[in-house]
């Protein structure tokens, strides 16, 4: 048990707030990178080199917050209470590959919909929701998608 929470929390692996803070722009608002040499856009953010042209000159790039479902799975994890995955909503979930309106891809959960309503091609928009817990029991947040 955590001193901050009544929930059972597994501490085999201790993640810190620092790593979440470093990636906050991508996690909270889908900010990626654009290569100022070849123009290629990337998500998540690149750290100093473009794999396409190997240029080192990169700027920020705001990905669109809308897109469509290209593929999806319905995951029914029976180990919810035992797995120690710290992942919010673990259990029955819809995980999708989403093609953003600029052609970039993001893998993320779909929420606020019935599993029966998920369709390839459906329009979705990004929201910020709970991901995993940090070592101090705070929740990390990041992108998920809901029907547009």
């Amino acid at each position: 048990m955590s001193q901050f929470s009544g929930e059972w929390i597994n501490h085999d692996m201790i993640f810190t707030t620092f790593r979440a803070w470093r990636e906050r722009l991508g996690r909270y608002r889908l900010e990626g990178s654009k290569c100022l040499g070849c123009g290629q856009v990337w998500f998540p953010q690149r750290h100093g080199v473009c794999p396409k042209c190997h240029g080192r000159d990169l700027g920020s790039y705001q990905c669109p917050s809308t897109g469509k479902v290209e593929e999806f799975i319905i995951k029914d994890n029976p180990f919810t209470d035992l797995s120690g995955t710290h992942y919010h909503g673990r259990g029955k979930r819809v995980l999708a590959m989403i093609e953003l309106d600029d052609g970039l891809h993001v893998a993320a959960d779909l929420e606020d919909l019935s599993t029966a309503d998920v369709k390839v091609g459906m329009r979705v928009r990004m929201v910020t929701r709970k991901w995993m817990r940090e070592s101090n029991s705070n929740w990390q947040y990041g992108y998920k998608f809901v029907p547009a």
């Binding site: 993640f15 790593r19 979440a20 990636e23 991508g26 996690r27 998540p44 593929e71 999806f72 799975i73 995951k75 995955t85 992942y87 909503g89 673990r90 979930r93 995980l95 590959m97 893998a107 993320a108 959960d109 991901w131 995993m132 990390q140 990041g142 992108y143």
Partner: peptide, 16 residues
């Protein structure tokens, strides 16, 4: 940094 924290592990990626 990304997929793992978003709940996408080895099994989920293979399922996709």
């Amino acid at each position: 940094d990304w997929d793992y924290m978003a709940g996408i592990g080895h099994e989920e990626a293979l399922a996709l």
